[in-house]
Every structure is written in structure tokens, then in C-alpha cells.
Amino acid sequence: MDLKVKQVTRIDGAKEALFLPAIFTGLRLTINHFWRNLFGAKDVVTVSYPEEKRHISTRWRGRHRLTRRENGFLSCVACYMCETVCPSKCIHIEAGEHPDLSVEKYPVVFDIDELRCVFCGLCVEACPKDAIRMDSGVISLAYTSRQTFNYTRDLLRDSYDPKAHSNPKYEDIDLPSPTNRAAALPNSKGVPAS
């Protein structure tokens, strides 16, 4: 394959040596921007986080959540698929027998160390039961202690009662669903959720 060579002709001459025409061209550009943004910041595309949050796609791999069956039990059958596939070995599951016979096997312990997680989404793909998903909409996890990053089963469980748990930063608003997205992402400048 031939290399594409772009010949750039060097501009010389009195006009270039004067600098002034070039400076005025540049000034015209910058003054244009300055003038447009002087009243009302028209060209500014900055999203003023955290007052404004961008719309995030449902495919975004955020913090995990454990889905539920229709009767409210966790969908997870503790098959260890996700734990096995996880490249960073951050899922820890302990299986147990459920008293309810319709459930049979269920995770007694289901911890994800979100600090070690690389958000690859392999666990979601591996799950045969669609029990683990990463569409919780939580895009930033910021805490001050390592312990808080260890998400236990109850924290990962879908729509749990935040007051019953002691993770202070976890708020309902962090869980946008297609129905509450408008409330969850106030002032969103991004593409409106469909």
C-alpha cells in the first residue's frame, strides 16, 4: 500500500513575515467565540456535573444489580457461572438450600468487590438466568472506605429499602429505570430517554 503523502507548501513572503494578517485572522475567530459566549454561553457544551447529569444508555455497564423473579425471590440459582468467568475474581458466592422448594438453590452470600471489578460485563453474559445485570444506572461509586465498595447480596438486590441498609451514599435516585429516568437524571442535557 502506498503511503499517502500530503505535501504542505510552506507559505513565505511579505504577508507571512508581517504576522499582522495572520493575527487578525486569528483574532476574528477568537473574538467571534468570545462574543457569542459573552451573553449566555451559547457554544459551551460543558455539562455542569453534579447539577446536570448526562443521559446514560441502558447498555452502559454500571454497578451490578441482581434481578428478581416474579414472586420476588432472587433469580440467581447460585450456579457459580459468573464467579468462574469473572477475570478479576471479584465475585464471591456461597450457595445454600432455600426452604421454599420452588427456589431450591440460592446464594446465601453474593458479594461483589466493586473496587476489583473491571466492569467487563462477562458475568452478565455468563448468567443463564439473567439474574445479574449492570444496568442499575449507577455510574460513579465514590466512598471513603474500602469496606463500602464490597457490595453484598442485599445491596445488589433490585429495589431494596435503602433505610434498612447502612450504605449512606446509596440513594434511590441512583437507580434510574425507564420510568423514573426523568427524576433520576434531573437537568439532563443528553438525549432524552425513549
Binding site: T30, H33, F34, N37, L38, A41, D43, V44, V45, T46, S48
Partner: peptide, 10 residues
Amino acid sequence: KWSAMIQDRV
């Protein structure tokens, strides 16, 4: 402030 306006920043 002005440089921000020139460069479309806040």
C-alpha cells in the same frame, strides 16, 4: 473567564 468564553468553556 474571558479565555473560557474564547474556548467555549465555562
